[in-house]
Design a protein around this nucleic acid. Structure first.
Lengths: 205, 205
DNA sequence: TATATTTTTGAACGACAATTCAAAAAAATG
DNA sequence: CATTTTTTTGAATTGTCGTTCAAAAATATA
């Protein structure tokens, strides 16, 4: 009885270590060009052992991607909720997102200019899960903006479109950071994103 | 002599047919899950014949992607250049881009939420080519916006950042269209993109 | 420590698909 | 039409992994 709880803890630690190594390798090379042997060797197990923890390669990959992305969105939302006021929240949203991008560039590059994955059950359900995570996140942004509209701070535009626009403005800085090897951190774009999102580009006199 | 010109024309037609079929299939399933046999059968050749036209599978894929994307950007720029005035140009840019998205959803989905490709020479040089095409296109948008700044129509913000922001606002509608199965055409978002890009979301009184 | 149980191992298997190439078919030539 | 040249064919080759499983190692038990 006492044993089984320790066993389980150790099992989970081994599983976590495999996921951690797998993340590094998948982030670098994608899905198809990674072999189970590589992951096994990086995490100090034999190929066979991986099947103790995951059903197979696809399951390992989808688990890794799904858990990591959920964690990212949750972190961003947690930061955002920790401040008060719509404008502060928008600023924090942008900032924490860009910070994540800077720290997890390799992982996120899995989602940029890549190649479609198979139509296997595992991959289809991963895709659905990702869409769900994305939508949940956009809904969070949408509610944030609705608050600003209700407070009379923001124009009364379609909130969903606004939320997606903001999300993709952030994304545009991320993509630039990932594709080009610019020196300046993506976080340096925070002010610009705020500005263009809030004021647009047209000149008023 | 007379012959060889016809031969070449027919060779190119056969090559084009293969590319056309390959585009359909790759667009649907990505790279790894497509077999040479599939492409061969779809284009009415045997597997061996494909190697008459392309060095191999990667070469076939990179050629297809590269030619198609160049064509898309060129079309968008051609439309944009055909109208006068910065605001009209911006509108046409958005519109023609969204129209391409609507008509080539499958192809473009190759670049959304997918998986990294191999580090083979062919794939690395495809990647570089895509980055180059993307940058050329953003530079085109940048010059367009610079015109607006010089004319005193747009705020004097960093033009490169503005160009990327605009490109990704367009992209945000495309991604939404591709991920969700919304009924409304992406083109219906043109007005919103124009508005948010030009005026931002903040309320003025 | 001896025995039972759990976990790990990695060689062997099997499926799959890119590529090749000798033979066949088609086209050009005279 | 006979012969040469070009093009196409698709079965055979080849290499690559994902996965399995019987044996070995490690761990728990008494």
């Amino acid at each position: 009885m006492e044993r089984s709880v320790r066993k389980e803890r150790e099992f989970n630690m081994r599983r976590a270590e495999i996921l951690k190594q797998a993340e590094k390798i998948f982030a670098l090379k994608g899905f198809h060009d990674v072999t189970m042997a590589e992951i096994a060797s990086a995490s100090g197990f034999s190929t066979g052992s991986l099947y103790q923890f995951f059903e197979g390669k696809e399951n390992l990959y989808t688990t890794m991607v799904s858990e990591k992305l959920d964690w990212m969105f949750a972190e961003v939302r947690k930061s955002t909720e920790s401040v008060e006021g719509t404008l502060n929240k928008i600023e924090t949203l942008i900032d924490s997102h860009l910070q994540f991008v800077e720290k997890n560039t390799d992982f996120l590059s899995l989602f940029v200019r890549g190649e479609k994955v198979a139509f296997s059950d595992a991959m289809i359900s991963l895709r659905q899960k990702l869409i769900y995570s994305y939508q949940t996140h956009v809904t969070f942004i949408e509610n944030l903006l609705k608050g600003g509209i209700e407070a009379g701070l923001l124009r009364d535009l379609p909130s969903r479109d606004m939320a997606e626009a903001l999300f993709h403005l952030i994304r545009s800085s991320s993509v630039r950071w990932m594709l080009m090897s610019t020196k300046e951190s993506p976080c340096s774009k925070k002010g610009f994103i705020m500005d263009i999102f809030l004021h647009g580009v047209k000149k008023y006199d």
